[in-house]
Design a protein around this nucleic acid. Structure first.
Ligand SMILES: [Mn+2]
Ligand SMILES: [Mn+2]
Ligand SMILES: [Zn+2]
Ligand SMILES: [Zn+2]
Lengths: 137, 137
DNA sequence: AATGATTTGCAATATTGTTGCAATATTTTT
DNA sequence: AAAAATATTGCAACAATATTGCAAATCATT
């Protein structure tokens, strides 16, 4: 889908900042952190705008978050099937310890897991750390 | 195991800060973030010392990290079987969206998952968000 | 108790995140 | 196509979080 189409489908205004950030996600192999976006965007986008755009994109179901253990949040494009408020991204995420890229393994679904009595699951994330296919040489 | 024993087993000096922080983990039901420790420790521990202690504890296999999507890192006690450099904590973590506590589900192991050719896993984390047993009333 | 090694707290600095508000850009209406 | 209404952006100021070097204090060893 085109940048503008994605924004319009989500009911968002089409602005330069949003198109530029979306462009970055389209072009990127792996997931992006706030800092990546601030550094690599073609035009200059204010730090605050980046924060707000990422938040808007998450809420609109355009991108999803990937938890990490380094005080950053990673973001990656959602499938078209994701919608505002209701994400459908239960695939596994792979963080390469060598190149440090994070991949969405779109074809690997997060397996169900049986929880103790009383725990009611809503959403499950699975993050695998290891060596990615590009780094195994 | 006693506080001092834990530290000695890890080959660490036994200091007031370390005992106090360890105490907090023993007393806490759920996982702790840096901020929790800074706020709730009985004696006053400098912010920098808290950072350094957490790092040391992770490296020594005393605590393990839990990834989140809110720019914090959560920490919880490891099993006795964990050792420096080589953690053995592949259990599921449960974050309650109501009370916001994070539990180690020590008895729920992270299931294996088949990765695409070429991806070599080292460690897997699984975080379930939902409603915990205490909040289902 | 004295020595040496490690840890701690402070200060200074850097990085990251939040908020209000006026200026600008976008969408909708006329 | 212009005007009006709405939404977004950037700036500034601030708050919160994280990092580093170094001297003082604490801890382990003798
Ligand atoms: Mn993903
Ligand atoms: Mn745990
Ligand atoms: Zn790699
Ligand atoms: Zn709860």
């Amino acid at each position: 889908m085109q940048k503008e189409a994605v924004l319009k489908k989500a009911g968002l205004s089409v602005t330069e900042s949003r198109k530029t950030i979306l462009e970055l996600f389209f072009a990127s192999e792996g997931a992006l952190a706030h800092a990546d976006i601030e550094k690599h965007s073609s035009i200059n986008i204010d730090r605050v705008t980046v924060y707000r755009t990422l938040q808007t994109f998450v809420e609109s179901g355009i991108i999803h978050q990937i938890p990490t253990t380094d005080n950053t949040i990673l973001y990656a494009l959602c499938k078209d099937s994701c919608e505002a408020g209701h994400h459908q991204d239960e695939h596994v995420h792979f963080i390469c310890v060598s190149c440090n890229k994070t991949n969405c393994l779109d074809d690997v679904m997060v397996p169900m897991v049986k929880l103790p009595k009383g725990f009611l699951p809503i959403q499950t994330a699975m993050i695998v750390k290891g060596t990615c296919i590009d780094c195994r040489n």
